[in-house]
Amino acid sequence: MAKLYSKNVLAAPKMLPKKETIKFLLSYSQALSIVKVGKMRFECVAN
């Protein structure tokens, strides 16, 4: 057990998002509108 916990952890490779993921998130954020009415909040996604 002692050997198991004393091993060095290798650094994780950089994780970069795909272009499709970035495009999806940007288009979603542009289509999202939030309207506050009193204490309520309405979220609408325009398709």
Rank of each mutant, 00 (worst) to 15 (best):
residue 10 L to S: 07
residue 42 F to A: 01
residue 26 L to C: 10
residue 15 M to H: 11
residue 16 L to D: 14
residue 35 V to Q: 11
residue 11 A to P: 00
residue 30 Q to L: 13
residue 26 L to S: 13
residue 39 K to M: 10
residue 41 R to S: 08
residue 39 K to I: 12
residue 34 I to W: 00
residue 27 S to V: 12
residue 28 Y to V: 14
residue 22 I to F: 05
residue 42 F to Q: 03
residue 34 I to Y: 01
residue 7 K to I: 03
residue 25 L to S: 11
residue 41 R to L: 05
residue 15 M to C: 14
residue 8 N to R: 12
residue 16 L to C: 14
residue 47 N to V: 14
residue 28 Y to N: 07
residue 10 L to M: 09
residue 39 K to R: 13
residue 42 F to G: 01
residue 19 K to M: 02
residue 27 S to Y: 04
residue 30 Q to H: 09
residue 20 E to N: 02
residue 33 S to F: 01
residue 20 E to G: 06
residue 6 S to R: 13
residue 32 L to R: 14
residue 46 A to G: 07
residue 36 K to M: 03
residue 36 K to D: 09
residue 31 A to P: 00
residue 35 V to E: 10
residue 20 E to Y: 06
residue 28 Y to M: 15
residue 6 S to K: 04
residue 15 M to P: 00
residue 33 S to G: 03
residue 40 M to C: 04
residue 41 R to Y: 03
residue 9 V to R: 03
residue 20 E to C: 04
residue 32 L to T: 05
residue 36 K to A: 04
residue 23 K to C: 02
residue 42 F to S: 01
residue 31 A to E: 01
residue 12 A to M: 11
residue 29 S to E: 10
residue 10 L to C: 05
residue 8 N to L: 11
residue 13 P to R: 02
residue 15 M to G: 13
residue 47 N to I: 15
residue 38 G to R: 00
residue 43 E to L: 04
residue 27 S to K: 14
residue 29 S to P: 00
residue 21 T to Q: 12
residue 6 S to D: 11
residue 32 L to Y: 03
residue 25 L to I: 13
residue 4 L to P: 01
residue 26 L to P: 00
residue 30 Q to F: 11
residue 16 L to W: 09
residue 24 F to I: 04
residue 2 A to Y: 06
residue 3 K to I: 04
residue 33 S to R: 08
residue 22 I to S: 07
residue 6 S to N: 15
residue 5 Y to E: 10
residue 9 V to Y: 05
residue 17 P to V: 01
residue 11 A to E: 03
residue 30 Q to C: 09
residue 29 S to G: 04
residue 29 S to A: 15
residue 25 L to Y: 13
residue 22 I to L: 09
residue 2 A to I: 11
residue 11 A to Y: 00
residue 33 S to D: 08
residue 45 V to T: 11
residue 21 T to A: 14
residue 38 G to F: 02
residue 1 M to Y: 14
residue 40 M to H: 07
residue 27 S to Q: 15
residue 11 A to Q: 02
residue 31 A to W: 02
